[in-house]
Amino acid sequence: PQEEYKKRAKKALKKGDEDTAREALKRAGLSPDQAEEFIRRFL
C-alpha cells in the first residue's frame, strides 16, 4: 500500500539514499514532481 512505500522512502532518506526514496515514491503512485516535493519536505 501507499503508506508502506512512503515509510520506506522516509527510511531511505534518513540514510541519505534519495534514489531508493524516489523509487519507493514512484511505486506509491506519486508523480516525479510529487516525489521531489515529498523529498524536499523531508530533508
Rank of each mutant, 00 (worst) to 15 (best):
K15V: 13
T20R: 08
K10D: 05
K26M: 12
Q34C: 09
I39F: 03
R40V: 07
D33C: 12
A35F: 03
E37M: 07
F42A: 08
E36K: 05
F38I: 04
D33V: 12
A9K: 02
K26G: 08
P32K: 10
K15T: 12
E23V: 08
A12I: 03
F38E: 02
Y5M: 09
Y5A: 11
A35Q: 09
E4P: 05
L43N: 09
E37H: 06
A21D: 00
K14V: 13
R22S: 03
R40H: 09
G29N: 04
A9Y: 02
S31W: 04
K15N: 14
P32N: 10
K10R: 14
A35D: 00
A35K: 01
D17W: 04
E3S: 08
E3G: 07
E18T: 14
A24C: 14
S31E: 06
D17R: 06
E18S: 10
R40M: 08
E3R: 10
A9F: 03
A35Y: 04
A35G: 03
G16S: 04
Q2E: 13
A12C: 05
R22T: 03
Q2I: 13
R40A: 09
R22C: 04
G29Y: 02
K10H: 10
L30H: 02
K11N: 13
P32D: 13
R22W: 06
T20A: 14
E18P: 11
E37G: 05
A28Q: 02
Q2V: 12
G16K: 05
D33F: 08
E18A: 12
F42I: 08
L25Y: 01
R41A: 12
F38D: 00
A28C: 05
S31R: 06
Q2G: 10
D33N: 08
I39E: 00
A28I: 04
E36M: 06
L30A: 03
Q34H: 05
R22N: 03
F38K: 00
L25K: 00
Q34E: 14
K6I: 15
E36T: 07
Q34M: 08
L43C: 11
T20N: 07
E37F: 05
S31K: 06
E23S: 07
A9T: 02
E37Q: 08
D17L: 06
E23I: 10
R27V: 07
R27K: 13
E23M: 07
E37I: 07
F38P: 00
S31V: 03
R8K: 13
Y5I: 04
A24P: 00
D17M: 06
G16L: 04
A35W: 04
K15Q: 14
F42T: 07
K11F: 06
Y5E: 10
A24G: 03
F42H: 08
A9G: 02
R40D: 05
A28V: 03
K14H: 12
K26W: 07
D19V: 13
K10M: 15
E18G: 07
R41E: 11
E37R: 07
R41K: 12
G29P: 00
P32C: 08
A21M: 02
D19K: 14
P32T: 10
K7M: 10
L13F: 02
R22G: 02
Y5T: 03
A9D: 01
R40F: 09
L25W: 00
K14S: 13
F42S: 05
D19H: 12
A21L: 02
K7L: 09
T20W: 06
E18H: 13
Y5F: 13
E4L: 09
K15Y: 12
E23G: 05
I39W: 02
L43V: 08
R22F: 05
D17Q: 07
K26V: 09
K26S: 11
L25E: 00
Q2K: 11
I39K: 01
A21W: 02
R41Q: 13
P1W: 15
K26A: 14
Q34F: 05
Q34V: 05
G29E: 03
F38R: 00
A24Y: 15
G29H: 03
A24W: 15
E23A: 10
F38A: 02
K15M: 14
K6D: 04
G16A: 04
K26L: 13
A28D: 01
K7T: 10
E36D: 12
R8V: 14
R27P: 01
P32R: 10
K10T: 13
S31H: 06
E18R: 12
R8P: 02
E18N: 08
E18C: 14
E37A: 11
P32E: 12
Q2A: 13
K15D: 15
D19P: 11
G16F: 04
K11G: 07
E23P: 00
K10W: 13
D17S: 04
A24H: 15
G29V: 00
Q2C: 14
P1K: 14
E23L: 08
P1M: 15
L25P: 00
R41I: 10
R22H: 05
A12G: 02
E3P: 06
K15R: 14
S31F: 04
G29A: 03
F42R: 03
R27T: 08
G16E: 03
L13T: 01
E23F: 04
L43Y: 15
K10Q: 13
K6T: 10
A9S: 02
A35S: 07
E3L: 08
S31I: 03
E3Y: 09
R40E: 07
L13C: 04
E23Y: 05
R40W: 10
P32W: 11
E36N: 09
F42C: 09
K6W: 14
D17N: 06
I39N: 00
K15W: 08
D33G: 09
R41Y: 09
F38W: 10
E3A: 10
F38S: 00
K11Y: 08
R27Q: 14
G29D: 03
A12R: 03
S31Q: 06
K7F: 06
A9H: 02
P1Q: 14
F42N: 05
T20M: 09
R22M: 06
A21P: 00
S31D: 10
K11M: 12
E23W: 07
K7I: 10
G16V: 02
R8A: 14
E18Q: 13
K10L: 15
Q34R: 05
L13E: 00
A28P: 00
Q2R: 11
A24E: 15
I39L: 04
K6L: 15
L25G: 00
R27N: 12
P1Y: 14
P32H: 11
G29S: 03
D19W: 11
Y5G: 06
E18D: 07
Q2N: 11
A28E: 02
E3H: 09
E36G: 04
E3D: 12
L30V: 04
E37S: 07
R40Q: 10
K6H: 08
G29T: 01
K10A: 13
K7H: 08
E4A: 09
D17P: 02
Q34I: 05
R27I: 09
R27C: 12
E18K: 13
E36W: 05
A9I: 04
A35E: 05
G29R: 03
A21K: 01
K26Y: 13
L30G: 00
K26I: 12
A21T: 02
E18F: 15
K11T: 13
E37N: 06
A28L: 05
E3M: 08
K11W: 08
L25H: 00
D19N: 11
L30M: 12
T20Y: 09
L25I: 02
A12T: 01
R27G: 07
K26T: 10
E37V: 06
K14L: 15
E37Y: 06
P1T: 14
L13S: 01
Y5H: 09
D19F: 12
S31M: 06
G29I: 00
R40S: 07
L13Q: 01
E37D: 10
D17H: 06
E37P: 00
R8Q: 15
A21H: 01
A21Q: 00
Q2F: 11
A28S: 05
A12M: 05
K10P: 01
K26F: 11
A21N: 00
I39V: 06
P32I: 11
R40I: 08
T20F: 07
E4W: 13
K10G: 06
E37T: 05
K7Q: 13
G29K: 03
Q2M: 13
P32A: 12
E4H: 09
Q34S: 06
G16H: 06
A35N: 01
L13G: 01
S31N: 09
K11V: 14
K14Y: 11
K7A: 13
F42P: 01
D17Y: 04
L43I: 09
R27W: 09
L13D: 01
L30S: 01
T20Q: 10
L30Q: 02
Y5V: 04
R8S: 10
E3F: 08
Y5W: 15
K14P: 01
T20S: 12
Q34T: 04
E3T: 07
D33T: 11
L13N: 01
A9E: 01
K6F: 15
R22E: 01
F38G: 00
A21Y: 02
S31A: 07
E4N: 09
Q2P: 09
K6S: 05
L25Q: 00
K14N: 09
A24F: 15
E18M: 15
R8N: 08
I39S: 00
R22Y: 06
R8I: 15
A35R: 06
K11E: 15
P1H: 13
